[in-house]
């Protein structure tokens, strides 16, 4: 295998690693960078547990060759909150009972995160479609969908509040 130098942003911080560009981004994140939140449930892009965000798009990191990450911004669940407060999606997942075993949760939240970035007020059908590549065997999805809708509402309220505050100032 040919080892190459790959540089990209991981949760807004530059990282440089030496890896086979054909190696999967999932293995690179987990084995080289110690970023363990993307999970391997199948290794074939069928379960979505390894979902990360690559330049704004939710992708199965097990199917992305590491070389494709070069120059991109990769976001994982470690990078959706500042470490002090939690993201509205994280809070809503806890409050709505959307987490059981939790193995799908990181990937599920990343798919939801990508959806809400593009579509801040999704209809339930759009939520279902956005997470249809993320399998969950525990929950039947109902409480996950509720959590995503709730987080969307909270984020929109925050946005409105922010705009109102700016207008006042």
């Amino acid at each position: 295998m040919d080892i190459g130098k790959i540089t990209f942003l991981l949760n807004d911080e530059p990282v440089t690693i030496y890896a086979d560009p054909a190696e999967s981004l999932l293995h690179l994140l987990r084995d080289q960078l110690g970023c363990m939140s993307p999970k391997e449930g199948c290794g074939r892009g069928e379960c979505g547990a390894c979902t990360v965000i690559l330049d704004g798009k939710a992708v199965n990191s097990c199917l992305v060759p590491a070389g494709k990450a070069a120059g991109k911004n990769i976001r994982t669940i470690e990078g959706i909150s500042d470490g002090k407060s939690v993201h509205p999606l994280q809070r809503a997942f806890v409050e709505k009972g959307a987490v059981q075993c939790g193995f799908c949760t990181s990937g599920m939240i990343m798919s939801a995160y990508a959806l809400l970035a593009e579509n801040p007020a999704p209809r339930q059908e759009e939520v279902k479609r956005a997470i249809s590549g993320n399998l969950c065997r525990c929950s039947g999805y109902k409480q996950i969908e509720e959590a995503i809708m709730t987080a969307a509402e909270e984020m929109n309220e925050n946005r409105v509040r922010f705009v109102e505050k700016e207008q006042k100032e």
């Binding site: 999970k39 669940i77 987490v99 939790g102």
Partner: peptide
């Protein structure tokens, strides 16, 4: 009636350690 144990927070922050980890 809706109490959730603290472990759930490790799962929504990606910190929970599973067998494969």
């Amino acid at each position: 009636k809706n109490y959730q144990s603290a472990e759930v927070w490790t799962k929504v922050t990606g910190k929970a350690i599973y067998g494969i980890d």
